[in-house]
């Protein structure tokens, strides 16, 4: 008897699979351009109004510099000024940016390394959940700003204090989302793995972890936002370098143009790092992307 019954399948589906290799319609080039234009309109308008409202380069009686002055300040901050200058920020932009980025990187990585396993344990194992979750929930309402004195007292005015605050701030959203993801794994996927002879450890590694990845990435994105908040707060108080330190120091000596340039830098860095996570997510969760295109 013939075993080939594929011809009766209502959807032979080869075309569907091939169609999926280019899920983005060809018209998207034009659509992307339109979206970029749309996105730029509002900030461009705000900057233009802000610029025009200023008199002699500032608003509110000299308190707030206009965008062009902030831009000039950024250029000096970034590339230094020609000739002799007493500007203490001259040419230090990249160095300070890297200080902050490095702290965020270290703290965020530390948070991932601890929060993902702990989150999986809480979501997957009842004993771990009972032992760990109440403590996490108890500590979570304490804002990272409230940890500042503790951090300075324990770590002093050093890098470690900032990294600690960042890791702590990023830890909570990652752990909570990971646990949620691990709890919500479809029951039949677990049963299927058990039926195929997988032990608990294998199920955790090969089923629960991949099934939780969408939630984990949600946690990572929220956690990274908090990491940037934490680094600025920590540098304003507990360290003597980085974008947060420059921000507070510039305010202190009345250089609002540097303050604005600093704020813009922080915003752009946050945006960039979020895009990087999104990019990694898109690559890791290819199976999910295809799924959402279908539904």
């Amino acid at each position: 008897m013939s075993l080939s019954t594929g011809h009766m399948d209502s959807k032979p589906s080869a075309s569907r699979v091939i169609g999926l290799t280019s899920p983005i319609p060809t018209a998207s080039g034009g659509r992307n351009l339109r979206q970029i234009v749309l996105a730029v309109v509002l900030p461009a308008m705000v900057i233009a109004i802000w610029q025009m409202a200023g008199k002699d380069g500032s608003l509110f009686g000299g308190v707030l510099p206009t965008p062009d002055r902030a831009w000039q300040a950024w250029k000096v901050w970034a590339f230094g000024s020609t000739g002799l200058s007493l500007n203490p920020y001259s040419g230090t932009w990249l160095a300070n940016l890297l200080f902050s980025a490095e702290r965020v990187g270290k703290g965020f990585l530390a948070a991932i390394v601890v929060a993902v396993p702990v989150g999986l344990a809480i979501g997957w194992n009842r004993v771990a959940s009972g032992a760990l979750d109440p403590t996490v929930q108890l500590l979570r309402p304490i804002p990272i700003t409230a940890w500042l004195p503790f951090s300075i007292a324990v770590f002093g005015i050093r890098d470690m204090g900032a990294v600690f605050l960042i890791a702590l701030g990023a830890f909570y959203p990652i752990v909570v989302n990971t646990a949620q993801g691990a709890r919500d794994v479809e029951r039949n996927l677990i049963r299927a793995a058990m039926m195929m002879g997988a032990g608990r450890w294998t199920i955790l590694r090969r089923v629960v972890l991949p099934a939780s990845l969408p939630s984990i990435f949600t946690g990572l994105r929220i956690g990274l936002g908090i990491a940037w908040t934490a680094v600025i707060v920590a540098e304003m108080v507990a360290v003597k370098s980085g974008l947060g330190y420059v921000l507070w120091d510039a305010y202190y000596v009345g250089r609002m143009d540097v303050v604005i340039a600093d704020m813009a830098t922080i915003g752009l860095l946050g945006l960039l790092s979020d895009r990087i996570i999104l990019l990694i997510e898109g690559w890791v969760l290819k199976w999910r992307r295809l799924q959402s295109f279908h539904s």
């Binding site: 996927l189 049963r191 058990m194 039926m195 991949p210 099934a211 990845l213 799924q291």
Partner: peptide, 19 residues
């Protein structure tokens, strides 16, 4: 006493690992 590969289960919605 427990699931095992000697009894293969086919689920209604296939329950394949989507990743």
């Amino acid at each position: 006493t427990r699931p095992g590969p000697d009894r293969g289960v086919v689920f209604q919605e296939a329950a394949l690992f989507p990743w």
